[in-house]
């Protein structure tokens, strides 16, 4: 049956403006969440403007190696990388020190954010898409459809997911950005899928869905035009939290050498490269690790704040 129902007839079931205002009021009072949000904006700004920041700010290219170069620090001329292969620590020329090939760690941390953020955001979009379609379809149709899809998800969840991701990444041979995005998105969708399914299960019995059906709306229309808008609140919350998880996941894959390939810096592969030198050149691992920590923290703060604002029961 075709869905020719008038859109305006569903306008009333959208979240009311007063709900939005209340939520915004609650959110605005949450200073930690605001701080998280601002921090995310800052990181995104830094990452997207990385070439400019590096050019005018740090004045070192993240790719430029200084294996044989010397710098003047405190009036003394010193090797960026000494004869035993150890790089200089934080100083006035390299604020975060140099890595093992004499590259500026600060510039690389700024550039590394591009990969980690981009991958995490895109992977979350992939998970969101799979989870949304899967959860909605399973819950909306119920019965054998739901049973089959639920069984598939149980299979998915029986996997040790990090191992699954590692195996997939190894099997793909090339680890381009897109491959990493798809893998992370694919292994993590069950989280969102379960939430969507649960929400839709309660929503599909509600009056406004019945009303839409009575007006002759088709299944697709009901699922994605009627039910979906009502899922927005939980989706926003869990998507934000999922981004935090996916940043950790991406950096873990990079740490194992399965993320984007060198010389492209990512936080995870910076830690990997510096890992065996943590005892003599701590700055190579500590700074990218702090970057991960603060970014993930920011997304978690924002996610918590959004949850408190959108779901006042939990306050």
């Amino acid at each position: 049956m075709s869905s020719t129902a008038d859109n305006s007839s569903f306008a009333a079931i959208e979240p009311t403006s007063s709900f939005r205002q209340q939520a915004w009021q609650r959110f605005r009072r949450d200073r930690l969440a605001i701080a998280g949000g601002l921090l995310i904006l800052l990181f995104i700004a830094l990452a997207s403007a990385a070439p400019l920041v590096v050019k005018y700010g740090t004045q070192h290219s993240p790719f430029q190696q200084h294996m044989m170069d010397k710098i003047t620090v405190g009036g003394k001329l010193i090797d960026v990388v000494d004869d035993d292969g150890l790089p200089v620590g934080p100083n006035r020329v390299f604020l975060f020190g140099a890595d093992l090939t004499g590259r500026d760690v600060l510039s690389r941390v700024i550039y590394g954010g591009r990969v980690s953020l981009l991958v995490a955001l895109l992977a979350t979009a992939v998970s969101l898409f799979i989870g949304l379609v899967w959860g909605t379809v399973a819950a909306y149709y119920g019965g054998p459809v739901d049973a089959t899809l639920s069984r598939l998800m149980e299979l998915m969840m029986a996997f040790p997911i990090l191992l699954l991701a590692i195996a997939l990444a190894s099997a793909m041979q090339t680890s381009s950005l897109l491959v990493v995005v798809l893998i992370i998105g694919f292994v993590n969708w069950t989280y969102i899928g379960r939430i969507v399914r649960g929400q839709v299960l309660t929503l599909r019995k509600r009056e406004f869905v019945e009303a839409a059906r009575a007006l002759g709306a088709g299944d697709l229309h009901i699922m994605f035009r009627v039910i979906l808008p009502n899922l927005m609140a939980p989706l926003i919350v869990y998507t934000t939290l999922a981004v935090a998880g996916n940043i950790l996941f991406e950096t873990a894959l990079s740490f194992l050498g399965l993320g984007v390939q060198p010389p492209t810096p990512s936080w995870g592969n910076m830690i990997r490269e510096g890992m065996s030198y943590y005892n003599v050149a701590w700055w190579i691992t500590v700074f990218p690790g702090l970057a991960i920590l603060f970014t993930v923290l920011a997304f978690n703060l924002l996610g918590d704040g959004l949850r408190d604002a959108l779901d006042p029961r939990l306050k």
């Binding site: 873990a252 740490f255 830690i271 943590y278 005892n279 993930v296 923290l297 978690n300």
Partner: peptide, 25 residues
């Protein structure tokens, strides 16, 4: 709660390296 948030936001392998540097090395 901030402590807990930091806990869930820390990359576990990085924390391991930091603890190794401080307490072991």
């Amino acid at each position: 709660m901030i402590f807990a948030l930091v806990g869930i936001s820390t990359p576990v392998y990085w924390l391991g390296l930091v603890l190794l540097k401080i307490f072991a090395d």
